[in-house]
Amino acid sequence: MPHTRIPVVAGWFTEDTAEEEFRLLGTRCSGCRSVHFPREDGHCRNPGCPGGELEEVPLSKRGTVWSCTDGRYRPPPPYVSDPGVPWVPYTLVAVELAAERMVVLGQAAPGVGVDDLPVGSVVEVVPGVLDEDRAAGTVHTTWNWRPVAAGALS
């Protein structure tokens, strides 16, 4: 069935790209090079920065696990889930990006559990589906983190 794909938040990640090209999108200050994710489009938040232009920038494809956990119980709204369907736990992972020197949260790809994500192991960002409205024929897209078999950062 054809689906209209809608990003859960517009402008946070690339759309209509192949999996290899999929990236999170942040903004980088032209003055101090600080990166902001979620994107900051107003002013650079570095208090010592005289202020520069905030330019959209793709974040690193790969990073290392800072920590992870899972959600064994259904989160409350506005998380979208069907109360009529048994809850399937998902994994949440915090990923350290070396080039940006920051940590970014995300859900792990479906089927990836905490045991697959030891602290320090390499993961990469891939496109994912957050929720689906079959009646409306729409899906909300998001980003997922997935272990990298080879384990290389680049």
Binding site: S67, C68, G71, Y73, P75, P78, S81, L92, A94, V119
Partner: peptide, 21 residues
């Protein structure tokens, strides 16, 4: 609102991240 909508990240999820770290 966004952390719930996008990630379903409840307060205990953050506590879990700190604990595993």
């Amino acid at each position: 609102w966004l952390r719930f909508r996008v990630l379903g990240a409840t307060n205990p999820a953050y506590f879990g991240l700190y604990a595993r770290r």
